[in-house]
Design a protein around this nucleic acid. Structure first.
Lengths: 143, 143
DNA sequence: ATATTTGCAAAGCCTTTGCAGGGGA
DNA sequence: TCCCCTGCAAAGGCTTTGCAAATAT
């Protein structure tokens, strides 16, 4: 019985974030480091708006455009994943980049990560379907 | 080995569509019947824009707003499902309302229905997770 | 006659883009 | 110095909404 929360990166330091960004070929500006601190450590499936709100509280000055640009940059670099779930419009972001699945609480809208190894999927597709990945969304409620 | 295409409703007649709408408590106007003819029979995971384009070709006059309103009405009535897939923004519609899964061809963007019974999913969630449904997205390419 | 639906246009929301100014390498 | 990044504001795409005219029961 695996835990449902995928281990999140321990909150890593600004220096480590800087290294991560540099390793990905991204210039580690103050704004980008701030956004990373939130989306890679602290946040849990935030929307762009939530990232902006956090940045406004914790970082002197950042524009919404820069938030979007930064998120897109991180997604393009593979440090962040975009999620489109059925219960809401718009995108939410997931700092867990290993392949995993999701549980959506239909009452609260909360999203939980589910480790890939706690789900076993046996797909019998026709010939000619080459599979590169699977994403499962489980809907339900949490007692 | 199940076929990958879920059986689509045989193209049903305007009269049958009318009955279906009435059974769902929806007034069967000409516009709604036209949209239903397309999304419930003919179309394969169309976008709203594609529904509008089809309507423009096959139905004298319908506004984009009415297309959206009709699609939303059908979704609310459970006759149609909304799908948000990762490869594109916006919504696509699925006339197959039985529970099933999807295969996304990452090269072409094509979406294929996969019958529920050709996928077996074994989920070991923690206690307290009450499951009401599962949706699997398989990504890959088709040879 | 009454309630519902349609069409048009305008508004809304979220996201991206253009450009000038600013900061890091 | 040079290039990339930032911020602002404007533009963009998609979807919804308001209201008057049209339609169905």
């Amino acid at each position: 019985m695996s835990p449902v929360k995928t281990a999140k990166l321990a909150c890593i330091s600004p220096q480590e974030i800087e290294s991560k960004l540099e390793a990905a070929g991204i210039l580690p500006t103050a704004q980008r480091i701030a956004v990373c601190r939130y989306v890679l450590c602290e946040a849990d499936h935030p929307t762009a708006e939530q990232v902006k709100a956090w940045a406004d509280r914790n970082f002197p000055k950042i524009s919404l455009a820069t938030v979007y640009n930064t998120l897109n940059t991180l997604v393009a670099a593979g440090l962040l994943k975009e999620l489109k779930l059925p219960h809401s419009d718009g995108v939410i972001y997931d700092g867990v980049t290993e392949s995993h699945h999701h549980f959506l609480d239909e009452k609260t809208g909360e999203v939980f990560d589910i480790p890939a190894d706690s789900i076993q999927i046996d797909a019998r597709l026709g010939k000619g379907f080459q599979v590169s990945g699977m994403e499962l969304l489980i809907r339900g409620t949490r007692k």
